[in-house]
Design a protein around this nucleic acid. Sequence first.
DNA 1: ATGAGATATATCGGCCCGATATATCTGCAG
DNA 2: CTGCAGATATATCGGGCCGATATATCTCAT
Lengths: 181, 181
Amino acid sequence: MELSPTAYVILGMVSRQPRSGYEIKALVDNSTRFFWAASYGQIYPELKRLAEGGLVEGADSPRGERKRTVYAITEAGEAALREWLRQPPRTYETRDEGLLKLFFAGALPRDEATRILAAMREHRAGLAERLRSMEPKVLEKEDPYPLMVLRAGIEFNEWFAGWCERMEAQMLEPARPERSR
Amino acid sequence: MELSPTAYVILGMVSRQPRSGYEIKALVDNSTRFFWAASYGQIYPELKRLAEGGLVEGADSPRGERKRTVYAITEAGEAALREWLRQPPRTYETRDEGLLKLFFAGALPRDEATRILAAMREHRAGLAERLRSMEPKVLEKEDPYPLMVLRAGIEFNEWFAGWCERMEAQMLEPARPERSR
DNA sequence: ATGAGATATATCGGCCCGATATATCTGCAG
DNA sequence: CTGCAGATATATCGGGCCGATATATCTCAT
């Protein structure tokens, strides 16, 4: 069975304990979202596919009158997850509309180009702060890897905000400052 | 007319001179690809849409027997491009399968987790090198912004490779080294 | 001359997002 | 106590976008 990376995210999220699609979405939004997002439109159909393939097992677990299905990983699922972890990563993608606008900023007066950098800096600084606020909770768990990844996110966004700041400063210098090294 | 960021990439790429879809794809692959990619499956239909909307104009420009259409930006297109540049950036996305695997690396023995970091480091170092090799060509142009963005890419990938290296070193340390600051 | 690789366009399955819809639950403000 | 906002839970749909594939013509080196 050929699985997308998002399928492995789901597999990973149910590998510690059974969870509903809704819980998986909430987990993703509080952890992997910053380097691998997943939407309901992905999660629910994918859970069904994984169940058909025998990598997870669904069980009805209603809360009151409200229907609810929790999915547990199977042994085949655990094997598939470990097998995937051992393969070299293949997908690396970035879409950053700020850098895109900066790329074409020659069509704008200089002060408006600087504004793009400022917007990017604010955005990255805000992200870093949000991630930093999540650190104490992740620090409690015994698994060290989510913490490592979270800190990567914090440090990356701090680096990016710093880069924007340096470029903003460079834009204020007088003579063709953008070309200096 | 509502346009996707990729439509603006195309608009930006034809804003200096008329180009064919094929040329646009090659340009993107050598410049914005690292923070905003575009495929043929996007470019050709989008060019038609932009032409219908009057933001670009297509002109037959065959080479020998081979059909070829080059698209030039219109005044409406230039206005739309500048208008877009002035709006705050909205789309920021990253998909990094390496970080994803690292996140779930608790299911693996420690030496295999370290291997994930090594693969990420090599990948990022290679990317940095490829981008660095593009610098001389970009340095020739008079437009400073593509250079600025290219250097962001170089420095980001260098930072990332360095982070991986530091984490690899930390993994070799003895006592619960992942939690140290 | 011939075949590899560049130029040029088109298409399709499938991943994935964001928005929307529906229904049930909880807790709290009035 | 009512009612309503917000959380829990699942489903769906249009559209962005990728990667692969297909087709055809051109150029150039062997």
